[in-house]
Simulated scan of single mutants.
Amino acid sequence: MLAPDDGWAAAEGGTTGGAAADAAHVHTVHDRAGLVRALDGGSDTPKIIRIAGTIDVNTDDRGRRLTCADYATDGYDLSAYLAAYDPRTWGPARPSGPQEDARRASAARQAERVTLKVGSHTTLVGLGRDAVLKGASLQVADADNVIIRNLEVRDTYDCFPRWQPNSGGLGDWKAEYDNIWLRGSTHVWVDHVTLSDRGRPDAAEPTYFGRNYLRHDGLLDITNGADLVTVSWSRFAEHDKAMLIGNSDSRVSDRGKLRVTLHHNAFEDIVQRAPRVRFGQVHVYNNRYVVPGDAHDYRYSIGVGTESAITAENNAFTTPAHVEVADLVKSWNGTGLQQRGTLFNGFPVDLLAIHNAYNSGSERDLVADVGWTPSLHGPISSAATADREVTRHAGAGRVR
């Protein structure tokens, strides 16, 4: 159960997950079929689901491993898809026609297997040190009071990415599934999880139409008016876009929502979005950021988006020489960032002052007044202390 002061998920009644479950709704599951039965279609019945060992969701009802070829239908073929929608001949229009229809149908077949709906009043917890969901997309949609703990969710892999000709100006591949997606949900605590592309990194994928053939989307996205969320003692690793909070600049209905606390998390070899925020009041404290020496694709860590109100305190960044302090923060139409206690390669820095000094002319200056002061939090350690504690204790299998 979440402590009374442990971030935004402790507000307005707190978060208890499946604590009210009766004996008939406490399950230990070992395979996809058992997990699906226990989730009960995302019902709101209080339930505790304990995951034992590794569960691969790309399996059929008898447990047989499914490959992308098993999902392909209606004549879908990647080579034919690439030939049909080559920008040199197809142009900038959105793909349409038989191969795009076949891709959609094939994607729908995979979605039936890999997307798992988590309903209200649910605790999903791994047993011991080696509980793994492989290939799964946990979707907490329009639910309330959910706990996800002590669980590794890895390689949420899209067999059928779609080509978006106009994305980013050059076009891009779009994968469909987040490891965990909180959408329109409230009172959610994510604790001691490990999220990554482990086993199948996008960097190893081929290039088509001049763009990396991305197979993974976000690690943990919090969108569509989700609110009162705490993410703690978790590990985000070896991925491009780690965490999106708020999905659109135009979604003004998100105002007053997207209140999120991130503390004692490790962001290791993450290219961007750790997190990227729109609208929400987000408290980012005592986190550890590590950019490896060979990570030349690193873009930024904290993204200050439209009407976001981020307070970042006592976070530690370790980077190679080619990454500068000014690279850590990116303004995406945001106006404010309150920060203090930041360590950069062991030295104290002022993220706000350095961002404004080095990005003048290319991004708007940020101000320190974000209109609120965090009050729901436990003890806040120095960045150096947090760096050591997160190294030892963050991630699945490390619950104390």
Rank of each mutant, 00 (worst) to 15 (best):
T391N: 04
L133Y: 03
G361F: 04
S106V: 10
V325H: 04
G41W: 04
G91N: 10
P379S: 02
E363Y: 12
P92S: 08
A105Q: 13
I49F: 00
S96I: 06
L78Q: 07
S301Y: 10
V114D: 02
V193C: 02
C159F: 11
G168K: 11
S382A: 08
A107Q: 09
D40P: 05
F347C: 06
A21P: 12
W332F: 14
P161A: 08
A21T: 09
P161E: 06
R103Y: 08
D44Q: 11
G293D: 14
V153T: 07
R62H: 13
D227M: 07
K117Y: 09
D191L: 03
I147V: 15
R149E: 15
V36M: 11
T123M: 06
F209I: 10
Y213F: 15
D142Q: 15
H121D: 15
G119M: 04
I147Q: 12
H187L: 08
A33G: 14
W163R: 03
V323W: 00
D350L: 10
H25I: 00
T223H: 08
Q272K: 15
L366D: 07
I380E: 12
I270N: 11
A226M: 08
T306G: 01
Y298F: 15
R104W: 13
W173T: 05
A93V: 04
G97Q: 06
D22P: 03
K174H: 07
K241Y: 07
Y300I: 10
Q339K: 03
P92M: 03
D155G: 12
D101T: 13
R198T: 14
L133N: 00
D70G: 08
R37H: 08
T28I: 02
P201W: 02
Q272N: 10
K330Y: 14
K257T: 14
G293N: 10
G378S: 09
F160D: 08
S253G: 14
I380V: 15
T89V: 15
V367R: 14
D227E: 05
G34N: 03
L244D: 07
I148S: 06
A11E: 15
R273P: 02
A111Y: 04
R162E: 13
V277P: 05
M243N: 14
V260H: 05
T230Y: 06
D56I: 05
F347D: 12
V291W: 13
G378T: 10
L78V: 03
E268R: 06
N247M: 08
G119D: 02
H192Q: 14
R94W: 12
A203H: 12
T115N: 03
D77R: 13
F267G: 04
P320R: 00
F267Q: 05
V323R: 02
Y85P: 12
S196Y: 09
E238W: 10
T73Y: 09
F317Q: 02
T186V: 09
S196C: 13
D86E: 11
E363G: 01
V114H: 01
T156W: 09
